[in-house]
């Protein structure tokens, strides 16, 4: 397969697997984890432990946003790393190791959600309260505050949970985790244009969900 990474991470040709084979010759991508991965693949378990330490935070964060609760997030974080350990010998440096991890974690989340009933019930409850006008933040928030208050963030989390996983995953990866479109496309195995349009649709759906709160929010100039 041809991966079209050029040094310093510029990607040519998008992520559409149908067009990859016509694109430029492959250059191995720069990956800060490469040395650790190589050591681990050569049998050094200590290196794998270091990889966990290095990536557990972002894996847990993603899974927490996807699942909406700590127990599932922690459980799936462990599963993600176990799965990596089980299958990681197949990882080759065609993409960043961190992107590979996101893909494994994303699959773990998508597989798990089907079995979940309670997350949905919690969302419904919150939504009812929201619609009834309860529970809105009692005072306007400080616009300088970089993080949301408990109640407000609970509303945002609940709104996220109403999205289908196919919309939720890219918007989490983009707006919350700060990945670029290309990395998300690789992690989710979809075309980059798809990622973009899903993010936009997700934001629009969130805006609908959060409408009641937005009126109280100050406008943002200049993005």
């Amino acid at each position: 397969m041809n991966y079209e990474f050029v040094e310093r991470g510029t990607m040519v040709g998008g992520t559409n697997p149908l067009v990859r084979e016509h694109a430029a010759p492959r250059v191995v991508v720069e990956d800060p984890d490469r040395e650790l991965v190589a050591r681990w693949q050569a049998g050094d378990e200590k290196a794998f432990e270091e990889l966990i330490e290095r990536h557990q935070q972002r894996v847990y964060r993603l899974l927490y946003r996807m699942m909406g609760n700590r127990e599932d997030a922690e459980d799936l974080t462990q599963e993600t790393f176990l799965s990596l350990h089980r299958h990681g010998h197949r990882f080759r440096s065609e993409s960043r190791f961190s992107t590979f991890i996101y893909r494994v974690a994303a699959n773990a989340a998508l597989n798990r959600r089907r079995a979940l009933g309670r997350g949905r019930a919690r969302v419904e409850k919150l939504k009812t309260r929201n619609d009834a006008g309860d529970d809105l933040p009692s005072s306007p928030r400080d616009p300088e505050d970089s993080t949301l208050g408990g109640e407000l963030s609970e509303h945002v989390r609940a709104a996220l949970a109403t999205l289908s996983p196919a919309l939720r995953m890219p918007v989490i990866l983009y707006d919350i985790e700060g990945l670029a479109y290309g990395e998300i496309a690789k992690a989710l195995g979809v075309a980059e244009g798809t990622v973009k349009s899903r993010i936009h649709r997700a934001r629009q759906a969130l805006r609908e969900e959060l409408k009641g709160l937005l009126a109280a929010e100050p406008a943002i100039e200049g993005n």
Binding site: L148, S153, V156, D175, I176, R203, R207, L214, E217, I220
Partner: peptide, 11 residues
């Protein structure tokens, strides 16, 4: 939309 994005990023 901008407010929505900001709320997301401030979680």
């Amino acid at each position: 939309m901008q407010q929505t994005i900001r709320l997301l990023r401030a979680l």
